Amino acid sequence: MILNIRRPDDFHVHLRDGEMLRKVVNHTSKHFERALVMPNVPPIDTGPQASDLRNRISKCSEFEFQPLMTIRLTERTTPATIHEAKEHGVVAAKVYPQGVTTGSHGGVTVEQLRGLGDTFAAMEQSGMVLCWHGELPGPGWLTAEQRMLPEMHRVVDGFPKLRQVMEHISTREGVEWVRSCPDTVAGTITVHHLYLTLDDLGGRGRWGGGGQLHPHYFYSPIAKFDEDREILLRAALEPTGKFFLGTDSAPHPTAAKFNVDAGCCAAGVFSSPVAMAALASRFDAEEALDRLEDFTSVNGAKFYGLPLNEGRMELAREPWVVPRMIEGMTPFLAGEELPWRVL
């Protein structure tokens, strides 16, 4: 069986910089027409910085590809910063609460977030989208997403025309919150949150057997429970248009994912090379292949006010095995056989 869909977009990806950028950019540009590039590594806080990174991305990509640029919101972000970024083609600004993920040390505290009213107003006026890493800092890792919802809702209520995206939703409560918000609020869902639960990370699930911790399934926000995964899948399949793909592909060298000497493990899943094949396999298992194009190629573009891609992608129901290593990095579902692949 061959599935032909509109060429997809990825509304949340980490492309890094330097040598890592050269290694990973084509795994995104090969499969996606456009991608929203996250601003945490390297830190991108201004329009000129975003333009410079866009140029480096374009020089590294071998495929026709449009990087959509973002900046970080920090305590130093002003309305002037927003208007300058808009002139440089920046489409979104990202809230990183301090200490919740890789590269968030320059993010904002809750108190600083509440002081950004003028900046949110400038974003509302300019049409720039506000993206959230929706986790509250501090103790309570598994409930960080739920505890961030009131802070996000404060901005939704205060700036009703500001388009906002809750990124990489991981919980039932996050899905229900997006559903309850007006049409100015949407949510992205990753591939790995549609596959994994805490059991997989802990080596006791379908995708992480053996009873040992699986470092390549460690990311932020962390996988939750079976119920959360099921609710996320229902959201990805629903026809409301409020949910769309953001892979949150965040590559690290394999040595950084399993750093014995440092006694730590970097957060992030390298899913770009396998994302569309994994999604087709997941949607097919739900007898919902007819919903794949909307989730990957339509909903996000409409929310961001972008024209739909004219290019096409073909996928085949043809088993293949995900490579165990790609240029020194371990991809998502490494070594697993998937029933679908991208042609």
Rank of each mutant, 00 (worst) to 15 (best):
G205D: 09
D228Y: 03
F243N: 03
F225L: 15
D199S: 15
A236V: 05
S220Q: 10
T197D: 12
G205R: 11
S220L: 08
I231V: 15
S220W: 09
M166P: 04
D183P: 08
R229G: 05
T247K: 04
H214G: 07
K242S: 00
I222D: 03
E227M: 02
A236N: 01
L198F: 05
M166Q: 09
A223G: 00
L201I: 11
F243R: 03
H216W: 14
G241S: 04
S170A: 09
S170V: 00
M166G: 04
G211H: 05
P239L: 05
E173H: 09
A186D: 01
E230A: 12
F225Y: 10
T247P: 00
R229K: 13
Y195H: 07
G205A: 07
E167Y: 10
L198H: 08
E167L: 15
R206M: 14
D228T: 02
H168Y: 02
W207E: 10
G210F: 10
E173S: 12
A223H: 03
I189W: 07
L245W: 07
M166I: 14
P239F: 08
L196M: 14
I222Q: 10
I169K: 03
Y217H: 13
G246M: 11
R172D: 01
L201S: 11
E227S: 14
K224I: 01
R172P: 02
L237C: 01
A235V: 06
G187Y: 08
I169F: 02
P215C: 13
T188N: 02
R179E: 10
G174E: 04
G208V: 12
W177Y: 13
G205L: 10
A186M: 07
A235F: 07
E176D: 07
E176M: 13
R172E: 08
G174F: 07
D248Q: 07
R179K: 11
T188S: 06
T188D: 02
F218K: 10
E238A: 12
H168W: 04
E167D: 07
L196K: 08
V175Y: 08
R229Q: 09
G208F: 15
I231L: 11
Y219E: 06
G208D: 14
E238Q: 12
E173I: 00
Q212G: 12
D200W: 13
L201F: 15
P215A: 13
T184H: 01
G203T: 09
S220V: 08
L237W: 11
P182K: 03
G209H: 12
P182W: 02
R234L: 05
E227Y: 07
S180P: 02
R234T: 05
W207C: 14
R229W: 01
W207Q: 13
E230N: 03
A186L: 11
F225Q: 15
I169W: 00
R204I: 01
T240I: 12
W177M: 12
P221E: 02
P239M: 11
G211L: 13
L196P: 06
L213C: 13
G203F: 15
P182G: 14
D248H: 06
H193G: 04
I231A: 15
S220D: 00
V175M: 07
C181T: 11
F243I: 10
S170F: 06
V185L: 05
T247F: 00
I169Y: 00
L233R: 08
H168C: 03
D200P: 07
Y219A: 09
D226K: 10
K242M: 02
V175A: 09
Y219R: 07
G209W: 10
T184M: 08
Y219D: 02
Y195E: 12
F225P: 00
D199Y: 13
V185N: 03
